[in-house]
Simulated scan of single mutants.
Amino acid sequence: MSRNHLPTLRSAAVAAGTLAVIAATASSSAPLVGDTAEAAGAPRTRYVQYAPAAGKAPAPAPSADKAVTKALKALPKPAGAYDLAVADLDSGAQATYASGKGSFDTASIVKVDILAALLLQAQDDGKTLTGAQKKLAAEMIRSSDNDATDALWSDIGGGSGLADANRRLGLTETEPGDGGTWGLTQTTASDQLTLLEAVYGDGRSPLDGDSRHYVGKLMASVVDDQRWGVSAAADDTGAAALKNGWLPRSSTGLWDINSIGRVEHGGHTLLVAVLSDGHESHKAGVDAVETYTTTAANALRD
């Protein structure tokens, strides 16, 4: 076939397709839409096959990052800085928002990381946690007991033990605190999301199933007066599993307020990590973190 005939054939094909659509839509004003499947396991992409008579195809949906960033930037200017990371385990959508500050103090959210390190070491030795360690772990996560944390920090080998575990867990932006200052471990929201994925993700984690279940069970049963933060985005706050951190800084008198966890939101399971500082009070920080969480969750789902 001559190349010169191709434009004519294309024109004829387009005309035929247009006539077919006109005939098919004579009794309906709705546009025809279809789905294309991407590579196996990838999300399906919706497209407009032919536009309705009025004309234009709808604008594509913004990316998760853009949608979450836009929603958060529309909020009033924060007192301090904050970073956020969120993932939808059902759709696979993820988004991060970074203030540009870099890393934040973990305060007590590092206790989840310490427990993960303890469980990895037990797995390596082919053992389970001792009765004493289980009691300390429950106190550390459920009521954020610092004495229990000191004991388990020592058990894992302090900062070096945490660093070893984090290399295996995929945390690349977390620096353990010096000596016994586990609460001054530096981290990012993206690293905390990676930690949550190691606990709640699809099983590609160095933590085995029993270990992941154990961490999740403790995070789901924190004491009532610590059920704030990311739990604000849950359809039912009883369905949230979380760990919070709060720390007044002696040098400034301002508060670090952090929250990480898993929530059920709009029929989907979300993992959320929020790190923040510069709050005038504990309550102001909690209110801010809950606003950031619900705003990001709604933007990701919408």
Rank of each mutant, 00 (worst) to 15 (best):
T45C: 00
D113M: 04
D287G: 08
A81W: 04
V86P: 03
T185M: 07
G261F: 02
P31I: 11
G157Y: 08
P62S: 06
Y82W: 06
R301Y: 14
A20W: 09
T293R: 05
P206I: 12
D113V: 01
G161N: 06
L270K: 07
S205I: 02
T194Y: 06
H282A: 13
L6M: 14
R142S: 13
S231P: 03
A234F: 01
G209Y: 10
S28H: 07
L270S: 00
D88M: 11
S28R: 11
A24T: 08
R167C: 09
G159R: 08
S27P: 03
P78R: 15
A85C: 01
K111C: 10
A117S: 14
A71D: 00
S250M: 02
A40H: 02
A15Y: 07
L75M: 09
A232I: 00
G238C: 05
S154T: 10
L270Q: 08
D256P: 03
A12G: 15
A30Q: 13
S143I: 12
N298D: 12
D225C: 09
A59C: 09
S11F: 14
A232K: 03
D164T: 12
T237R: 10
T25I: 10
H268N: 12
A98Q: 06
T185Q: 00
N166M: 15
V199Y: 01
P52L: 13
P31C: 12
L72M: 11
S63Y: 00
S29I: 11
A81C: 10
L275M: 02
S29L: 14
T174F: 13
L242S: 09
